[in-house]
Nucleic acid binder design. Structure first.
Length: 291
DNA sequence: CTACAGTGATGGC
DNA sequence: GCCATCACTGTAG
């Protein structure tokens, strides 16, 4: 991990940088054809180039230029390329008990029973809170069993974001409790705290098919990517790539269940529930964590 | 680039 | 059940 602790404590407590970063990424991806210089971008955002450069680098650990390179098709293909098959064969010793090993952030998970799923959250108490994160405001939702939801919103968009999530388990009781959710937020977004000793507890609430897809996603290590059809193969339904896409899109715990590491077969970023720009940001941020 | 077909899970009716 | 809707993919013009 090249990102040092100081830079992380800079970004994580107040996620203000993300707004700037988001606009930079957006600008560049919209106008990549005319290769805008740092200067032009800075001018458009009403900031000085040096200032912009600094904020961006603090956020990603990567210069804007290097970052962009990390999110190109080329790079995406490389993420996909390396040893196609072995990747998903990595053991996932989860079961419903013992701590399993999972990608970079160690996670234990359990699935909800079908009964609980049918009840659509009936009898479940979900506590939630908004917290700043490197990717904008993060909405964290937890139950007694562990983390159940993670979503993102830009400033001012909290309400639709919450409703999006709450609509998935309409019968649950929702309690605002950011004191309870805060520890989760800080765990998740600080790579320094990713360790196997204290795995993050996660509870997957979804249909059987969805849960299988999400479990597959959890097997993708940091800095790697797979295609929707890889995932389809992994769950034993090679032709169901489209259905897989839909299931990936319904992932309630984005980032932790790394749905941003699922790409189209061409390496193109096909879609993202919380905005394609955010998907780029995550991939670029991760690229910086590895190097 | 667009169009279309084949695809499987899901949710509303 | 039926039908529309997808964060898909391959083929054709």
């Amino acid at each position: 991990m090249l990102v040092n602790a100081a830079s992380l404590t800079d970004i994580t407590p107040d996620g203000g940088d993300y707004e700037t970063v988001r606009r930079v990424i957006e600008t560049i991806t919209n106008d990549y054809r005319d290769q805008p210089s740092l200067e032009t971008i800075a001018a458009r955002l009403g900031q000085s180039p040096t200032q912009l450069q600094k904020v961006f680098t603090r956020w990603a650990g990567l210069s804007p230029k290097a970052f962009l390179q990390a999110v190109t098709l080329d790079h995406a293909k490389r993420l996909l390329g390396q040893e196609r098959l072995p990747l998903l064969e990595t053991a996932l010793e989860v079961g419903l008990s013992g701590p399993g090993r999972l990608h970079d952030l160690f996670v234990t998970h359990e699935a909800m029973s079908p009964g609980e799923w049918k009840a659509r959250g009936e009898g479940l108490t979900i506590r939630y809170g908004f917290h700043p994160s490197p990717f904008g405001l993060a909405l964290v939702m937890i139950t007694e069993r562990g983390l159940a939801g993670l979503a993102f919103a830009d400033a001012g968009e909290e309400k639709p974001c919450f409703e999006d999530m709450a609509g998935r388990w309409p019968n649950a009781r929702y309690v605002e409790d950011s004191a309870a959710t805060a520890p989760y937020a800080s765990r998740i977004f600080d790579p320094e705290k990713w360790s196997g000793e204290q795995p993050l507890r996660v509870v997957l609430i979804g249909t059987d098919f969805q849960v299988r897809v999400w479990e597959s996603l959890l097997k993708i290590p940091l800095g790697r990517a797979v295609t929707y059809s890889d995932l389809a193969h992994d769950i034993g339904q090679p032709s169901a790539s489209r259905a897989v896409g839909a299931a990936v899109g319904r992932n309630p715990i984005s980032f932790v269940v790394p749905c941003h590491r699922a790409l189209g077969k061409s390496g193109a970023l096909t879609g993202y529930h919380w905005g394609l720009t955010r998907k780029r940001a995550m991939l670029g941020w991760e690229a910086a964590q590895i190097s």
